[in-house]
Amino acid sequence: MRVFKELGKYSSLLYQGLRSSTEFSTYRKNLFQELVKVGYDSVPIIILVGIFTGSVMTLQSAYQLESAFIPLSTIGAIVSQSILIELAAVISGLVLAGKVGARVATELGTMRVSEQIDALESMGFNSVSFLVVPRVLAGILMFPVIYIVASVCGLAGGVAAGYFSGQVPPADFLEGARMYFYPWDVAFGVVKSFVFGFIITSIACYKGYFATGGAEGVGNSTTQATVLGCIYILLADFILAALLL
């Protein structure tokens, strides 16, 4: 029962957001601020995550596929496809569920318990349009950018790891990567990143927006936003794979 109640509250928050998404003038300034916080500020961590994902994938694939019958290009194919289809979107999603999700939930939670949301509403603001819409929109708009950064860094990390460890020459790596490069994979990754961006920010907004009970309540809603964000990312990943692949 509680689940349905929560789902109903979540849906009505999203509906309010959707309905008020036309009030662009209300959230224009906030939108750019959020785009910077979600996108621009996340780039360094995503570069790091991407490079390490790619290089670890390469080293481990090289270790697992150590056989004379398997051409080295196979490693490139495995690494690049895994990164483009799965890892770039999911790992950056999980990392940002922590970074972005926690920040959004804390911000909104603090605003809720310190009556800032009430203050906004009592001034005649549409607090959903002012707070929730720009954050969710920023998630949706910036996650594909994050995906691109993670993919490129992942592949670069893969090539670099193969080269510096001497296990996979870059030419072989790229040959395999190109051989199994399907534009559909990239489209799939972009779709995923849209969905993940939406999930992380909307759940964090929901948890923060309805936070109760002072500082501890904010802490709880932040934790829940992070954990639920991760869970729903994995769930959505599964559903999308089942639906689209």
Binding site: Q116, D118, A119
Partner: peptide, 11 residues
């Protein structure tokens, strides 16, 4: 105009 208990200033 509302003056909130904790002032509710935007930090």
């Amino acid at each position: 105009g509302v003056l909130f208990q904790g002032s509710a200033l935007f930090d």
